[in-house]
Simulated assay, not measured.
Amino acid sequence: MLGLADVEAARDILAGTAVRTPVVESRWLSDLTGQQVHLKCENLQRTGSFKLRGAFVRIARLSARERAAGVVAASAGNHAQGVALAAQQLGIPATVFMPEGAPIPKERATRAYGAEVVFAGRYFDDALREALAYADRTGATFIHPFDHPDVVVGQGTVGLEMLDQVPDAATILVPAGGGGLVAGVALAVKAVRPGVRVVAVQAEGASAIAPSLDAGAPVRLDSMSTMADGIAVGRPGEVPLALIREHVDDVVSVSEESLSQALLSLVERAKMVVEPAGAAAVAALVDRPDAYQGPVVALLSGGNIDPLLLGKVIRHGLASAGRFLNLAVSLPDVPGALNGLLTEIAASQANIRTIGHDRTSSSLRLDEVEVRIECETRGTEHAEALIARLRDLGYKVL
């Protein structure tokens, strides 16, 4: 049985290692929701995520013999960096198995913290299998990313900090994958202030906690599809699930569009760079701005995002918000027709990014050409007004 004393003991272990990350008020989210909203910035934690907390507590409690044999982990990134830095700080050899598609910045950071990185298979389960085999073969201790009491209470120290920083918090939103973070936060929060509402936020394409709660035991998803690799876990842990059942008030899920729009808004409005998983709590607020009593604390769980993915997600978020508009317009194939269309688009204050022509579509008449134009707009209302204007002028917007 885990309790507040266990989380407080973990806090003592982490003193001088984990950073007490800041809480900042978000004016744009407060305006959106009509409640006071704060952001707990674990994206500014050492290694760029909360994972250092649980990994350090787990490794710090190993015996001298276990330390001599080293530690091993399987991770696509954040847990890998947490284990690597914790092992470096404690003078313990570490090996991390990663799937072959792991983000390059996370792999490089893990190596920079002194761990040996081994690629194994295409998926996390492949890396996990190899890590467990390595542990059996060498005697190294396997450091689970979420399904261990020491890991859970280590992550729970985030909850103690949030209550100290926002003592009147009414709702806390926490990204959730395997469940270690939300279980630890809920354990700590409910022990200190039982009336605070704790909500776990999952990606729709990797939402395993709700069906597991319904089944009364961890259930493995048949498949997963989400950009939020930090919470893409197909089966929650047994230790976290028991705590979630006891202490978490609700489990919600958010779409890929919501994640990308939340990430974009955090960059634009809060000046915070986060990974898709780290934006999940904000996505829940954007999806249902009237659903949560304030003051609200939304946890930004991590900021380790590949710059290439960041670019893709920002473009996706701009498109989802109506800031990018893709037009397909059928024009007469005569001189001046394109110029007239471009003049109307310019008059609407939309900015043209790209133009393409198609004269071979089976839907076109012999004397027509299809023009594809990508525009930058000010948002959905501006985009819809432009389309309506073009149709009023007689253009065939496809």
Rank of each mutant, 00 (worst) to 15 (best):
D6A: 15
E8H: 00
T17S: 05
A18M: 02
T33G: 10
V37S: 09
H38V: 01
K51H: 08
K51L: 08
R58F: 11
S63H: 06
R65F: 04
R67W: 01
A73F: 02
S75L: 09
G77T: 11
A80W: 00
A84I: 00
A86M: 04
A86G: 14
A87D: 07
Q88V: 00
I92E: 07
I104K: 11
P105H: 02
E107W: 02
A112R: 12
G114H: 06
A115D: 07
A120V: 01
A127N: 05
D147V: 02
V153H: 04
T157M: 08
G178S: 11
G179W: 00
V196F: 03
I209N: 05
L221D: 03
D222H: 05
T226I: 01
A228T: 10
A232L: 15
G234R: 13
G237A: 12
P240L: 10
I244N: 07
V248M: 11
S253P: 11
S255N: 09
E256G: 07
L259T: 13
A262H: 10
L266M: 14
V274K: 10
A280K: 10
V282K: 09
D287K: 15
R288S: 15
A291K: 06
P295G: 10
P295F: 14
D306M: 12
K312F: 01
G317D: 07
D333R: 07
G356P: 00
V369S: 02
R378A: 15
T380I: 15
E381I: 05
E384A: 13
L386A: 04
